[in-house]
Design a binder for these strands. Structure first.
Lengths: 238, 238
DNA sequence: TACAACCACTTGTATATACAAGTTAATTAT
DNA sequence: ATAATTAACTTGTATATACAAGTGGTTGTA
């Protein structure tokens, strides 16, 4: 039961190269050492090296060109709201102000924005909170989040202003979002949303219903996000 | 200059298995023949088989479990329109009818839905085509696509009905979409869209402006997609 | 019957090797 | 000097092989 079993060589190499890119040892446009070079320096064979590189390609860190080499692409940009990160990192922390408009409170519910809840999640209930994200004085996102109440010390009393929920979960509880599902739709602003966004009723709004899956086995949390995309479209890469 | 170079074995196997899944020969929950079986039936070795399977895993068609086998996941729900594949695979070929409403014609343009075009792209012009995707008699997607005119034999005369553009590009021209950028917004239906979708003016519509980057260096194509998300929200994983 | 051991099967990882195909720069012939 | 050829690199694909590790059924025992 060793929680930190030794990683297989191809993963070690992957982690190492990845780190070099994320930390800037290699920057965009650089060419990685050739596969054969990596073989000798890391004392593995080419298929092993290629397996590590495949992953970097897949994740967008590098791009390979036959006859030339592996070209560093830099941070895989754009993992915006449509992808892994939270909304804060999608737009850039600087201009985005986050307000907690409804403080976390424990509620019982049977489903989370269309995503069915597991029995144990119904049992323990969920923290529910509402936030508003404001950019240049204009509200852009309004979101409702449901977080199943497993052991999350001091959750209700945490400071949610101007912090990404993802960041809080990761740093305070070691819960990382690995992926998830989402459903997108365009809807007409209802009365509540109309007020938050200061637009007329019927105004087109983009809504995302999201399920965030985490590194804690079987543990997910959920949110429903309303976006005013009039000025800023949601940007992302894939 | 053979436009239809024979595909490498691992790609042939990939295409074949993929087809079996998308067409329903294998359905969700089925277990694929083991890697060794695939080796003998296709007369290749295991690394080759694994390369094909890796790709299916990556795209969400199958899931592998050590000691057990390759479990079919069905239509890769995950790779929806918000991710790698085209819209056809996002929803499932069966129920989605594709109509070509404006045939490909060469045009000159300076930008593609907000994405700047490279000089050579402006030079050679782009094929422009419009399609409508219909599900259960209800139009769901209306899209305009711009494809820079590099050497694409017979492009204008291809059959675009009920085929994913991604699939055509991949199988006919060995052009694979590796990733891209997209911008999403909710808008009000204008007159044209209102007619296509048979909704009133002002109806909320989800619009995606996308740039698709390919395995051909520097080659991208572009599309603008209008979605009626009233009945079916756009689904995707991340 | 219940349980443990075993076996046959699966995928996961790795080595060693070979040749094809694209890129680049040096070399050679004109 | 210029152009064509060559050589030395790069990644792409494939074979053949080996053992590790997880799964599930069978078998043999207590």
């Amino acid at each position: 039961m060793n929680s930190k079993a030794t990683l297989p060589p191809y993963k070690i190499l992957y982690e190492q190269l990845r780190k070099h890119i994320t930390e800037g040892s290699y920057i965009k446009g650089d060419i990685l050492p050739s596969e054969n070079e990596l073989c000798t320096t890391h004392n593995v064979t080419r298929p092993t090296v290629r397996k590590a590189l495949d992953r970097l390609v897949h994740e967008g860190y590098i791009r390979k060109k036959q006859g030339k080499g592996s070209i560093v692409q830099g941070q895989p940009q754009g993992v915006g709201i449509l992808s892994l990160s939270g909304t804060t990192s999608a737009i850039g922390k600087d201009n985005l102000e986050t307000k907690l408009i409804v403080k976390p409170s424990l509620i019982k519910c049977d489903d989370a924005f269309g995503f069915p809840l597991l029995d144990f999640e119904k049992e323990v209930g969920c923290y529910r909170l509402e936030r508003l994200r404001i950019m240049n004085k204009q509200p852009i996102f309004y979101d409702i989040t449901l977080i199943p109440n497993i052991n999350l010390p001091r959750f209700s009393s945490r400071n949610f202003e101007n912090r990404s929920l993802f960041e809080i979960m990761r740093t305070a509880y070691q819960i990382e979002v690995l992926g998830g599902e989402q459903k997108l739709m365009a809807i007409k602003a209802d009365k509540k949303v109309q007020e938050y966004f200061n637009v007329e009723v019927g105004y087109p709004i983009l809504r995302l219903d999201r399920k965030m899956e985490t590194n804690k086995d079987g543990y997910s949390f959920y949110s429903q996000v309303y976006c005013n995309t009039n000025e800023y479209g949601l940007y992302g890469t894939f």
